[in-house]
Design a binder for these strands. Structure first.
Length: 453
RNA sequence: GUAGUCAUAGCUCAGCUGGUUAGAGCAUCGGUUUGUGGUACCGAGGGUCGUGGGUUCGAGCCCCAUUGAUUACCCCA
């Protein structure tokens, strides 16, 4: 017999853990719905032609591939079979045509393009599903994890950006997370600065480097930029952007002065100004962060990231605007913006702050404890009546010793036990015991629900 | 892909410079108590010490390999 195990980087979620995860997921979903986002689900597997080439070379390596069913070797040309040893990459396209979804954004783009005649723009959808990546798991990083995306496609209105900032506030309020910071930046501002530093050829690498500012510090960034071959003056221009300051009109004006004459900067300043006007004041938790870059290179406008401030943890949400997500599938000119919550990290944050509600671990309100088989039959209609009033009720399935039944109630954090024996049945009642206080009372069988809080 | 750490009961871990029959707590089950729990007491089940090889009179402990877990780097959520 083999020892049971699950693939590395995957997890089981116990009932207690699931209750907490649901608490977060339902809060997010509820907020999304209040802003008019509609649910969308897509298959776990996509055709590889949909997935490959969208995430860069590294990303393509991380896509889980699904082996073709049946005689998967029959399509392989003979010469490939011969060279298969040590040359699996040339073999892969012949034996695998499908892969597991790598994120929710590409499937969204695929869906919109396939259904462009039915989709009404602006198209607001949310999607909460697992995604899979074939990389090395480590802390806070899994091969199967959940993304909670919301996107708006088909409008370049800055109201979307403003909405998402409000959504952040609403979600974190709903789950009781008080200490967080929303960081924003603009991709075109980054481009403008890199352009001013005369280093546009290295733009992509530079964004990766400055995105690490939190981790390696300003000095570390300077060092890596120098290693890239940039001169002192170039490095200084880029470093001058990295400060994090409260999001304000003053700040926007400063940026505007600093980058005068740049077309790219003009657009960015315009966006930030409008966003500021739409979000209004009272946003102490919103910061402009020049070091925020986000690795994904499809972002072209405002970008966001949310970081908890009272717990040492990476970003718990991110997002941004992209000009041309559906272009790769042949539908041009659709601007969009999206955000995504990292449920696993939010879970860890709430756990560390002990911010989950205590009654989250309670799954049953009342346990009927029958003393004999007749008592089981007696309990069924009573239990159903309680369930009809939305009281979570179960009947202990055997007329076991009372000690055993109460032990069961204790381990499940059940607060009420309805004990049913000869006496109770004769009196048309149950012995209702409150398990946290130990008090009990003979209660009429039709009036149980009155006592349940 | 690179590097470090770890692997003993279902879980968390003890196990001395290598020495007789590998232990504890928790969890599970039974009992003390024919219908009153969370505490206490008694008892039971559960291990080829990740796997394979080597050194040795003797290996849970030392050496090599291998597999798995975990952490950091790359990249990412």
């Amino acid at each position: 017999m083999t020892k049971p195990s699950i693939p590395r980087g995957t997890r089981d979620f116990s009932p207690v853990v699931m209750a907490k995860r649901k608490y977060i997921l339902e809060a997010i979903e509820k907020v999304y719905r209040t802003y008019g986002f509609m649910p969308l689900e897509t298959p776990a597997m996509e055709n590889l032609s949909t997935l490959t080439g969208k995430y860069g070379d590294e990303g393509d390596q991380l896509v889980f591939r699904i082996l073709n069913s049946g005689d998967f070797l029959k399509e392989v040309p003979v010469e490939k079979k011969d060279e298969a040893t040590g040359n699996y990459k040339s073999l892969t396209p012949h034996i695998s045509e499908k892969g597991l979804r790598y994120d929710l954004t590409v499937p969204l783009a695929r869906y919109v393009v396939m259904n462009q005649n039915e989709v009404d723009f602006p198209f607001k959808r949310y999607q909460i599903q697992p995604v899979w990546r074939a990389d090395r798991p480590q802390k806070g990083r899994y091969r199967e994890f959940w993304q909670c995306d919301a996107d708006v496609l088909g409008t370049d209105s800055l109201l979307c950006e403003a909405d998402f900032i409000q959504i952040y506030h609403a979600v974190f309020k709903a789950i009781g997370l008080k200490d967080y910071e929303i960081r924003i930046n603009h991709r075109k501002l980054l481009e403008a600065v890199v352009e001013k530093a005369n280093a546009s050829a290295h733009f992509k690498t530079i964004t990766v480097i400055i995105d690490k500012t939190d981790k390696i510090g300003i000095d570390g960034v300077a060092k890596e930029l120098a290693q890239l071959g940039l001169g002192g003056e170039q490095v200084n221009i880029i470093l001058s952007l990295l400060a994090k300051t409260p999001f304000s009109m003053d700040l926007i004006n400063q940026l505007s002065d600093k980058l005068k004459g740049s077309k790219l900067a003009e657009k960015a300043i315009h966006d930030l100004t409008e966003l500021f006007q739409l979000t209004g004041k009272g946003n102490q938790k919103v910061f402009f962060d020049g070091s925020l870059a986000r690795g994904l290179d499809y972002y072209t406008g405002c970008i966001f990231e949310v970081v908890p401030t009272s717990v040492k943890m990476g970003s718990i949400s991110g997002g941004g605007r992209y000009d041309d997500l559906t272009g790769v599938f042949g539908l041009k000119g659709i601007s969009g913006i999206g955000i995504s919550f990292g449920i696993d990290r939010i879970y860890d944050v709430l756990e560390e702050l002990q911010a989950f509600p205590k009654d989250n671990a309670i799954f049953t309100d009342v346990l009927f404890c029958p003393m004999d088989d007749k008592a089981i039959a007696y309990s069924i209609p009573l239990a159903n009546a309680l369930r009809g009033e939305n009281i979570r009720t179960e009947i202990y399935p055997q007329a076991s010793k009372l000690k055993k039944q109460l032990d069961y109630a204790n381990t499940k954090n059940i607060r009420w036990a309805a004990i049913v024996g000869e006496n109770e049945m004769q009196n048309n009642s149950v012995m209702l015991k409150h398990l946290t206080s130990g008090k009990q009372e003979l209660v009429d069988k039709d009036k149980i629900s009155i006592f349940i809080d």
